[in-house]
Design a protein around this nucleic acid. Structure first.
Lengths: 195, 195
DNA sequence: TAATAATAAGTGAGTATTCATTCATTAACA
DNA sequence: TGTTAATGAATGAATACTCACTTATTATTA
């Protein structure tokens, strides 16, 4: 009945926002700069989001969901914990290399004290860690000395922070690869399954 | 010969900047708001720093140095790795509780892709990890399978990220304490010294 | 089929406000 | 008095957001 909205435009806005924030930070990513990068008029952002804060908050939720979805998808192929965590770290590297800006955006905001993580997302991931721990312990693959927080450490903290070091160029201009993933897995398995 | 400068004023500026950035983020922490909080005129900041960016960059360097100094001070009392890491985590909790805003500021900026860490500070900490690893291996306390990055993980990544979860209220309104430190140490020791 | 009415997509100049920064001025001390 | 600390009004650029408007598309009529 009327003009068709171009889905690419909204997608461009999202991409532009993410990359501008990673490049310039929240304050440095102005609406006009984002709109210009997205090839869209300034005002058009406000047809989709009520404010800049809400735009970023939404994208952060999307990022969180994307991360969580990947985690959950990998868990579907769970056979043993060792196998799972190996695949998971490996796939995480691919995901990060494929969507580097999204990964940086997520890591940056997760450590920002002005942005709070979704309460439901938080509960979901804590729950998921708990269930993974129980399964591993039932199969006698994870010792009783391990806690949910240990699982969170090897699933979230250690991989994200180590891959982030690479993204920040801490070790020079190297991007994380299969070798990096294997190294992270090795470190994490020592934590979970002291040999 | 002339009027004496009040050292408390500069200190107030630093404190106000740190707390405003933690509370509102870099963009939200305006010069006038910082100056007001510090009880100082807007223009006075520019007697000490050429720009807002430089002010924050300097404070970040100071934070990094403070963290590094604490780490180095603890290393002076090194007897065994186990003892060291236990004391170190325990002291880190105290430091974080004592200077919560500084800790948040440091954690936030270390994960910000627009702020780069000092090259010399980076080298120093990598070097320190390497030396700690070698000492631990010489004493047969740390197995040969461990890497410098493992040391970095138990010295920086895991404690900072887990304490940060507490600061963000991830587990409710609990502040990290001796028990939290012991838990982190336990997790980290499993990683380093698989029993 | 051709003309037009109706609807939603998309624009971008305009607004009030806030921003970082400057500098002429004043206050406090030697 | 001479020197420096410290002030805060002034400035112009930039900010987030608004809204009256244009443009593309479809439905409905003649």
């Amino acid at each position: 009945m009327a003009r068709i909205s171009d889905p690419a435009k909204l997608e461009n806005i999202k991409k532009a926002t993410v990359s501008m924030i990673v490049e310039k930070g929240y304050g440095g990513a102005s609406i006009s700069a984002i709109a210009a990068k997205a090839g869209v008029a300034d005002g058009y952002l406000y047809r989709h989001y009520p404010s800049k804060t809400e735009l970023v908050r939404d994208l952060f939720s999307e990022s969180t969901a994307m991360f969580f979805d990947y985690l959950q998808k990998e868990l579907e192929h769970y056979t043993t914990f060792t196998d799972f965590i190996t695949r998971y770290h490996r796939g995480l590297v691919d995901l990060i290399n494929e969507k580097t800006d999204h990964a940086k955006f997520f890591i940056q905001l997760i450590n920002d004290f002005t942005f709070e993580i979704d309460e439901t997302a938080k509960q979901s991931i804590l729950d998921l860690c708990h269930r993974t721990l129980e399964r591993g312990q039932r199969d006698h693959e994870i010792p009783a000395t391990c806690s949910s927080l240990d699982i969170y450490t090897v699933m979230v903290i250690v991989p994200l922070q180590i891959f982030s070091l690479y993204l920040k160029g801490f070790f020079g201009k190297i991007t994380p690869d299969g070798k990096t993933a294997a190294m992270v897995t090795h470190t994490c398995l020592k934590l979970i399954r002291p040999s």
